[in-house]
Design a protein around this nucleic acid. Sequence first.
DNA 1: TCGAAGGTTCGAATATCTTCGAACCAGTGC
DNA 2: GCACTGGTTCGAAGATATTCGAACCTTCGA
Lengths: 109, 109
Amino acid sequence: MPDEQGHPERDEIELGKVLMALADPTRRRVVKALLEDVEFAERHCTSFGLQLSKATRSHHFRILREAGLIRQVDRGNSRMAQLRRQDIEQRFPGLLGLILQEADKDIAP
Amino acid sequence: MPDEQGHPERDEIELGKVLMALADPTRRRVVKALLEDVEFAERHCTSFGLQLSKATRSHHFRILREAGLIRQVDRGNSRMAQLRRQDIEQRFPGLLGLILQEADKDIAP
DNA sequence: TCGAAGGTTCGAATATCTTCGAACCAGTGC
DNA sequence: GCACTGGTTCGAAGATATTCGAACCTTCGA
C-alpha cells in the first residue's frame, strides 16, 4: 500500500503505471535528468527547466511519484525529487538505461 | 523512413513511440503473447483473444506496427503479426524481458 | 461469378490526459 | 504578524486515445 505521501512500496510498483508515466516526454525528461545526476541526487522541482505552469508541473511529479519512479522529500519550504534508482533497477532491470540512452533531441518538449 | 506498409527501419524505432505503444494493456498483452511463442512465430490477429471489435483491433495493431514492435505480413487473405524481437532487443536491450515478466493478472483488459 | 471472411478506413462518441488560472496551504524570513 | 515563495488541489478548457458501427477493399472458395 502506498505511504501517506503516495509512494508505492518497491514490490507494488507496476510495470503498467511505470510505462504510462514514461510514455510522456516531459516526464521522461525529468527522469533522464535525475539519471544523469549522482545516485542519490535530490533536485528541486523547478530545476528541470520545464516550460510549464506549476500546476502542470505538480501534476507530472504526482504521476511519477505514484508510479514509483521518484520519491518526493519535504525539505521545509520546498519539495525535493529523488529518483528511486535501486527500486526501479531491481524491479525492472535495464529500464532506466533505456531512458538514459535516448537522445535529448528525441524528447520533444 | 517507414516502408510502404508502415514498418520503421530498426534504427528509426523511437523509444517514445515504443513506450507509448506499451503503455496500453491491450497492446502489452499482444506483445507478451508473441514473446511467449517461439522466436519467429507468426500469429493471426484474431488469435489473441481480444474482446474488441475488428476496427479497434486494427487500430492497436497499427500502433504496434508504427512503433516498430511488430511486423505485419500479408498471407493472402489474412495478415500475420510477428514480433520484431531482434530489432527491439538490439535497440532497447532488456525491454522485452520486462514485458514478459509482467503477470497476466496485472494486465487488465 | 458471387458471396463470405479478414482487414482497413472513416466518422463519431466517449473517455482520458495535458494544461492552465485561481484558490488555498504550508513554511521562511522580514 | 505578514507578506512571499513553493506546492497542491480544484475546476474547466483543449487535445489525444480508445472504441465502435458502417462502408469498403481484397482474397479465397464454392
